[in-house]
Nucleic acid binder design. Structure first.
Lengths: 196, 196, 196, 196
DNA sequence: AATGAATGAGTATTCATTCAT
DNA sequence: TATGAATGAATACTCATTCAT
C-alpha cells in the first residue's frame, strides 16, 4: 500500500489543513484538497474512507502539533524562569500563521460542540494544556491562567494591538501576588518583577 | 397562501439562527431555513438577495442581542454591588441555550477572521463589551477582565464543571488585589477608592 | 385605463427593445424591462397579458419603424436620382445604432423561422421592402437588389470596413448594365459612372 | 452505467446543436441537451465546464461543417465549370435541414454581435468563404458575390419560392458581363490569369 | 386602476462517492 | 494498487405569473 508514494497520505492531510484555513471546513471538498496536494481525485477516497475522515485526520494532527508546541515553549522557558512570557500566545511568527492557527482552533471548537469525537479531542487537548500549566505553576491558579491564555489568544486575533507578553506577565503577577504562582523552582530564582 | 406577512423577514432570521446552531453556517441552506420558518422556498430570495445576506442578518441580530444582554446584566448588578458575579458568563439558563450561544459566537469569530464585514461586527461588539466593563471597573483591569471572561466563556462549553461565579470572583479579587477593581461605588468599603 | 400615465405602455415597449438589444430575447425578463422603463413590476402584466406579448409588441413596432425608414430614404432620394445610394444600408448614424438594428433584425429573423406570427411579420416587411424597391427600380432586378441589400446589411456588421455606397452603386450598375435599372426617371439623368 | 464512453463529448455537442435548432440558444438547457444525448445530467458539467462552453463547442463545430461544405461544393463544381450554380445556397437537401442551418447561422450572428469570441469565429468563417470565392472568381467581384449569396441564403428561408440557381446564375452573369467573372478556367478567354 | 408581496417550477452548477479498468 | 470517468442528489438562485389589497 502506498508503495510508490509513502508520504501521500500525509501530504493530503497537510493540504486539507491548508484548504480548511483558506475556506473553512464547510467549503472544504475532496477536489480542492486533491488539487492542493497534487494527487488525483480518486486518490482521496482510496486513502480515506470519506471526506469526514480526511478532516478528522487533519484536526487530529493539528491539535497534536499545537499541544506539542505549547509544551515545548513551557519546557524551554522553565529553566530560564521566563515562564510567564512562555504561556502567553507567542508573538513571534508571522501574523498570517497566527490567524491560520486561530482559524483552525475556532473551527475545531465549533466541531467539538457538535460532534463527540471532536469534543473528546478538544477535551484531551485542554486537559493536556492544563497539565502543562500545572506542572509549572501552582495548582490553585491553573484554571484562571488557562482561561486568561485562551482569552488573550482569541482577542489577539481581533485587535491589531494585543497585550504584549509583558502585560500578560503583569496580569499573572497580580493574579498570584502573595502566593507563589510558580511551582517548585523555588528559592533565589524569584523576583520576576525585574522582567516585567 | 397568506398574501401579506409583515413579520416574515424576522421569522426567517430567527429560523436561520436555529439552523446555524443545529448544523453550522457551512451546512445552512435556503431550504432548511425556509422549512424551519414555515415559508416557501421562493420566499427566501424575495426577502433577501442571497443566502449570505440571510446569514449576515442573523449574526447581526445575534450580536446585538448578546451585547444588550451583557450590558443589562452589568447594569442590573451595579446597584447591588454584585458586579463580579455579573460579568461571569451566566450560569442560570438552560445548558443547551449556553451551547447554542457559544456555537454562534465561535462561528461568528470564524467568519470574522475571513470577512471584513463580520470582523467589523465583532470588533464593534468587543469594543462595546470593553466599554461596558470599563464603565464599572477600573480602566487598568479592563483588558484582563475581558480576556478572563472570554476564556471562561469558552472553557465552560467543554467542561461539565466550570468555575463557579465564586471562583471567578476570587480570580478577579486576586487580579486586582491592592487596587480597587470596582469603580466609583465608594462608601464604607472605601479604602481602595484612592486608587480609582 | 392608463388614465394617469397614458404613455406607459409605449415606454414599456421602448424599454423592451432596449433590453432585447442589450441582452437578447432569451434573457429579456419582466423585471429588467420594468426597471428600465421605470414602472413597477406589477405594471407589466397589467398592461400586457404576458412577457411574450411585450416582446411581440416590441418587434412589431421595430419592424414598422425600419420599414418606414427605408421607404422614406427611397422617397427622399428619388427626386434627386441618388437611388442607388439610398438603397444601401445607411452609413450615417452612430455605429452602435447600426449594431442595435442589426441585432434586432437578426433576432427577429430567428423568431420568424420558429413562430408563424413572427414569420408573417417578417414576410410582410420583406414584401413591403420589395414593393418599395420595385416602385423605383425595374421589376426584373428587384429580387437581386433586395438580396444584395440584405447581404451588405449583414456583412457590414462584421467588417469594420464595409462597401461604401459607391461600391454598392457600382455593383448595381454592373448588375443592370444594358438594361435600365431605374424605373421611370429616364433620360438625361444617366452617366452615374462619373460618381463611382 | 456505462463506465467509459469516449464519444460522449461528441454526442453531447450534436445534441446541443439539435436543441439549439429546436428551441434557440436562449432556451437551451443542460437538462434538454442531456436528455437528447441520452446522458445523465451530471455528465454535462463533467465534460464541459459550463453551459456556455457546450454552446460554444456546438457553434464551433457547426461553423467548421458549413465552411467545409461550401468549400467542397465549389471544389467539386470547378472542373465542370458549373460554378455559378455551386455558390448558390444548395437547393437539394430537405427543406427542414435548410431551415435548421439558417437558424444556426442567424443565432450565431446574434451571438457574434455581442461576444468577441463568437465574432472571431464568424469573421474567420466569412474570410474563409470570401477566400473560397476568390479562388474561383475574379477578385473584383468577390465582395458582391459574397453579399449576394448571403442575401439569397436568408431570403430563401422566408419565401417558399426562392430564386432558383438559374436566376442567381443570371444575376452573376449580369454582374460580371464584359469582365470575366470566372477565374482561370480554359482557353482563349485567358488574360485574367495574370491576376491570380 | 394599479401594485407589491408572494411562490412554484425551473435553472446552472457542485460534489461526495462509486467503480470499471 | 490506483485512478479517471461517471452520476444522482443537492445547492443557490431566477422569474413569470398570481392575486389580495
Amino acid at each position: 500500500m502506498r508503495r510508490f508514494d509513502p508520504q501521500r497520505r500525509d501530504r493530503i492531510i497537510e493540504a486539507a489543513l491548508e484548504v480548511i484555513v483558506d475556506l473553512g471546513v464547510g467549503r472544504t471538498t475532496h477536489r480542492l484538497i486533491a488539487e492542493r496536494a497534487g494527487v488525483p481525485l480518486g486518490s482521496m477516497t482510496y486513502h480515506f474512507n470519506n471526506l469526514e475522515e480526511v478532516i478528522w485526520s487533519a484536526f487530529e494532527k493539528f491539535a497534536a502539533r499545537m499541544q506539542q508546541s505549547f509544551e515545548d515553549r513551557l519546557r524551554r522557558a522553565a529553566p530560564t524562569g521566563d515562564l510567564v512570557r512562555a504561556i502567553a500566545p507567542p508573538v513571534e511568527g508571522d501574523r498570517s500563521q497566527q490567524q491560520a492557527d486561530a482559524l483552525l482552533v475556532l473551527e475545531l471548537y465549533v466541531l467539538a460542540i457538535r460532534h463527540p469525537v471532536y469534543r473528546r479531542l478538544v477535551e484531551q487537548w485542554m486537559a493536556s494544556t492544563r497539565a502543562s500549566i500545572e506542572r509549572h505553576f501552582s495548582t490553585q491558579h491553573t484554571e484562571v491562567i488557562d482561561a486568561l491564555v485562551e482569552g488573550f489568544f482569541i482577542h489577539r486575533v481581533f485587535s491589531g494591538s494585543v497585550p504584549s507578553p509583558d502585560a500578560i506577565a503583569h496580569a499573572l503577577q497580580m493574579l498570584t501576588k502573595g502566593t507563589d504562582p510558580l511551582r517548585s523552582i523555588s528559592g533565589p530564582r524569584a523576583k520576576p518583577s525585574s522582567s516585567s
